[in-house]
Amino acid sequence: MAQVVVEGLRKTYRVAVREPGAWGAIRGLARRRWREIEALAGVSFAIGTGELVGFIGPNGAGKSTTIKILSGILRPSGGACEVDGLVPWRDRIRHVARIGVVFGQRTQLWWDLPVIDGFDLLRDIYRVDPARYRRTRDELVGLMRLGPLLDQPVRQLSLGQRMRCEIAAAMLHEPRLLFLDEPTIGLDAPAKLAVRELVGTLNRERGVTVVLTTHDMQDIEALARRVIVIGKGVILADEPLDAFRAGVLAERRVVADFAGEAPRIAIPGVEERAREGRSLELAFDPARIAAPALIAAIAADYPLEDIRVVQPQIEEVIARFYDLHGAGEA
């Protein structure tokens, strides 16, 4: 059952054009000129209950705009969208009560309040039953290891500590659908791992549907089974992560270790991608040479010690994909 349905969604921002210089500013007072920015040019997709979807694309592609519309805080210029049968911007109050949202660049907790007081405030805002709230809160506090942070005012927290609190805050009312807009931005490696673990757990064990935008492809690799790629306001790809990877980079890779300096290898359909001392990364086209044949060919002619089939780094896949579609920054 589709939980989120988006059809032909369009959003055009109108921005005032400022002419340079003082004279321009004065003229601008009398008559404003406007310029239109098409952030979404007809976006359609559907997301089923319990899915975890990576929503990716270069800067300015329209990811945050889509998330804002889906979460009911922005009205689109055209197209339709339903979440759990509600139109987000029209049924805003009922809609937002059922979803959780985290914008990585903002804080939703009160800056001057201790974390725990901010949580209590959210309990009342979402009218959560107190006993149920205590259970959920304690669970989240355990999961995100927030115990020692609870008494600190939010403004004293480090970015990573705050982000863990933010995600917990978005889950206090037990939403079935979570929108995460760059939740790992600016976090160090352990904090990123903690966030990934939490999001993964919420999705797997609680069946929470998650829509995740990020520029960190490790997030996608660790969490998403499906990716939706957007560029310049249109959907460029929407498929399972594996299919996406295979489609962009048809080549496959092996890493071979040799006894001694890695040799130059000349086999038709095989290219060298990287070399480092005794090991060599090779790309091959499975249509021209099959993996077993390749391995046999190498082993026959060179002092092979070890060989493993690897997947191309997701960063590389994405960069290649953006190139192919001319989807660089708008």
Partner: peptide, 9 residues
């Protein structure tokens, strides 16, 4: 933005 995310009038 977060103001609009709260289920309140």
């Amino acid at each position: 933005a977060y103001e609009r995310l709260r289920p309140v009038d």
